[in-house]
Design a protein around this nucleic acid. Structure first.
Lengths: 191, 191
DNA sequence: CGCGCGATTGAGTAATTTCAAATCTAGTGG
DNA sequence: CCACTAGATTTGAAATTACTCAATCGCGCG
């Protein structure tokens, strides 16, 4: 049992309890893989083969608009899932890029394997339901933050939620995540 | 079998197929209820007893900031789910108001009943997982729209996604949903 | 007719963006 | 140890976008 496996099991057991046999079984549906900094997990225009559990490291998902500007949808630090959800679910081409900001270890699962796993092990169906519900709650919070608050408040909100983020992510990327220009973020001088 | 029941069954069967017995069984977990225009499904500060499937009518969820301004998180037209997800899941007090904009017919389910139903009927666990995944995809799209686009493009985006919305929702509320002032929305004169 | 509500318009102000230039910083090679 | 470069960050100034507050318009309804 590697450290990654133990961490992943603990991650799943936040939602459902597992026997050793169940964990061993479900684990066979995943592939562990290392990615180096700057490597892509998903590239716009390609099909999306996997959903990724980021065990260690840091990845971001983003889209690039017609003026070439990048907009960051998500940072996935340790213990988080990331993919181009729409493309993954529907089997369409990615509209997002997903790129590692640090050397990263991920556990990957294909759509086929995930659906099979959900059918064969009800606890995993439940796990994904709960996890996705959590995800929706977080996305709703972010939407309310975006429509309710100005740039400064959104920035403070982010720092509060991810205290260590400034040490790992450039301010230009944080600006892109918050939906403001990097110059504006820079002028919010604080903390 | 009422029209509402038939509609609800079709809604569920968009994700999973059901036998008559399964539908009858799952349906016992829900309560059908009518609400009149302006009635609250959820009020800020109260506990959230149910998740609501809006069969007919229209409800909105919103939060009110410290300056008294309302920010609209969601419109639930026919065939959509709505609740204060965070408060419902965690059993905490609502931070959202949910209010009917029209006379509305809803099917309501408590957290306890939903969890029981998911345990007793794997297809419903799957249904909720799929539905919540869809929800996440939509929320992600909205976030990208909010951080990528200006007010005009967000407005056009909304009209494209919900063509009939102007006939059912005041422009002040649409502005609140888009995160702009109603005066600004008014000045985007088009369509 | 006149009230009430939603929508629009006007004018001034505030927030944010853009483009350009200056500064800072970490890592590299001499 | 230092100079140098590439990338990140900050700063400046003007332009744009959006907001606020107030007034007006339009329309359905008693």
């Amino acid at each position: 049992m590697t450290g990654i496996q133990a961490q992943f099991r603990a991650h799943i057991e936040q939602q459902v309890t597992l026997t050793n046999e169940e964990f061993d079984f479900l684990y066979t549906h995943f592939t562990e893989k290392k990615f180096h900094k700057h490597q892509y997990l998903v590239q716009e225009g390609n099909y999306v083969s996997h959903d990724y559990y980021i065990a260690q490291g840091l990845a971001k998902s983003s889209s690039t608009d017609d003026t070439g500007k990048e907009h960051i949808l998500q940072f996935a630090m340790g213990d988080a899932w990331i993919t181009d959800l729409q493309a993954f679910q529907l089997g369409t081409k990615a509209t997002l890029d997903i790129n590692c900001l640090e050397d990263t270890i991920a556990l990957m699962i294909t759509l086929e394997n995930r659906e099979k796993l959900c059918s064969d092990l009800g606890k995993m169906e439940k796990f994904f339901r709960k996890k996705t519900t959590e995800e929706s709650i977080n996305l709703q919070r972010r939407i309310l933050c975006l429509i309710s608050n100005n740039a400064r408040d959104r920035y403070e909100d982010l720092l509060e939620k991810y205290p260590g983020i400034l040490q790992r992510v450039s301010k230009a990327m944080i600006a892109s995540y918050l939906g403001v220009s990097r110059e504006t973020l820079s002028r919010l001088a604080l903390t």
